[in-house]
Amino acid sequence: MDAIYSSEQIFTTVVVILLIGILYSAFKILREYERGVIFLLGRFYKVKGPGLIIIIPFIQQMVRVDLRTVVMDVPSQDVISRDNVSVRVNAVLYCRVIDPQKAIINVEDYLQATSQLAQTTLRSVLGQHELDEMLANREMLNTDIQEILDARTDGWGIKVSNVEIKHVDLNESMIRAIAKQAEAERTRRAKVIHASGEMEASDKLVSAAEKLAAEPNAILLRYLQTLTEIAGEKNSTILFPLPMDLLNGLLNKNKQ
């Protein structure tokens, strides 16, 4: 009797453990940012969640999918620009799953696939632009890369929300060349500004000469003003220009 009783206890214990295991595997709790892709005998059934869901053990299987935005670091890539300059560029990618069914069924590892696609797209897009565009038009390049990635990952149920180029690393020789180019550009601007100033000054001088020529006594007053300014500096020698009209008048008187 004791043996039979012990066997019944063992059998009951095993049954209770099996029931607890079945119930544990049947009830699943999904967080607000999670979804469960349910397969029925290996075939896609539906997407469930969030909250408490029930699946049939051994018949249905569930794969959890995180819907939160993933920040993915794109490793540094060696890029040759359109003007044959070698640079190293790295970026950061923001993406999230918007269709759990496609993310699980259409691609084996959607994060790894998105990362590899981002690296190749970064190289191909930047290779179509010159170095100056990489340094000055990052916003345009970010938008181009984001639109290409978003279109290509749409079949995987992935939404690429943003791409940001972080660093464009140049070698020392290219940095020196850029510095020389910037210095030459500043010198060119200085010469253009100086020439423009000379042009404006010449226009003002012509206008002043026309006004002085209209009134003969005006030039004499200007001479006297200049003499007063020179005398105030206490110079030992004063060179004062003599008007040609005065000389002509003296010469005419001598001839008479």
Rank of each mutant, 00 (worst) to 15 (best):
residue 119 Q to A: 06
residue 215 E to N: 12
residue 45 Y to A: 10
residue 186 R to E: 15
residue 70 V to I: 12
residue 193 I to Y: 13
residue 164 E to W: 14
residue 67 L to R: 01
residue 253 K to Y: 03
residue 24 Y to G: 10
residue 1 M to T: 09
residue 124 S to N: 11
residue 115 S to W: 00
residue 219 I to P: 00
residue 164 E to P: 00
residue 174 M to L: 05
residue 7 S to P: 02
residue 167 H to E: 10
residue 98 I to Q: 01
residue 23 L to S: 12
residue 179 A to T: 11
residue 217 N to T: 10
residue 90 N to D: 15
residue 37 V to W: 01
residue 215 E to F: 00
residue 247 L to W: 09
residue 56 I to W: 06
residue 177 A to P: 01
residue 14 V to E: 12
residue 116 Q to G: 08
residue 96 R to Y: 07
residue 130 E to Q: 15
residue 65 V to H: 03
residue 7 S to W: 11
residue 80 I to G: 08
residue 2 D to K: 07
residue 164 E to V: 11
residue 93 L to M: 03
residue 69 T to C: 02
residue 232 G to C: 05
residue 49 G to P: 04
residue 101 Q to C: 02
residue 251 L to N: 11
residue 229 E to W: 08
residue 32 E to H: 11
residue 14 V to R: 08
residue 2 D to P: 07
residue 142 N to C: 09
residue 97 V to S: 00
residue 199 M to F: 15
residue 172 E to R: 11
residue 240 F to I: 12
residue 210 E to I: 05
residue 254 N to P: 02
residue 160 V to L: 04
residue 119 Q to L: 09
residue 121 T to H: 02
residue 235 N to L: 11
residue 158 I to T: 00
residue 213 A to I: 09
residue 203 D to A: 13
residue 228 T to G: 10
residue 150 D to G: 09
residue 42 G to Y: 05
residue 176 R to A: 08
residue 104 I to M: 04
residue 212 L to M: 06
residue 87 V to G: 01
residue 13 T to I: 13
residue 24 Y to F: 13
residue 20 I to T: 15
residue 235 N to M: 10
residue 203 D to C: 07
residue 131 L to F: 03
residue 256 Q to H: 09
residue 160 V to Y: 05
residue 12 T to V: 12
residue 216 P to H: 06
residue 38 I to Q: 00
residue 237 T to C: 10
residue 38 I to E: 04
residue 214 A to T: 03
residue 175 I to N: 05
residue 127 G to Y: 10
residue 243 P to W: 07
residue 231 A to R: 14
residue 102 K to D: 00
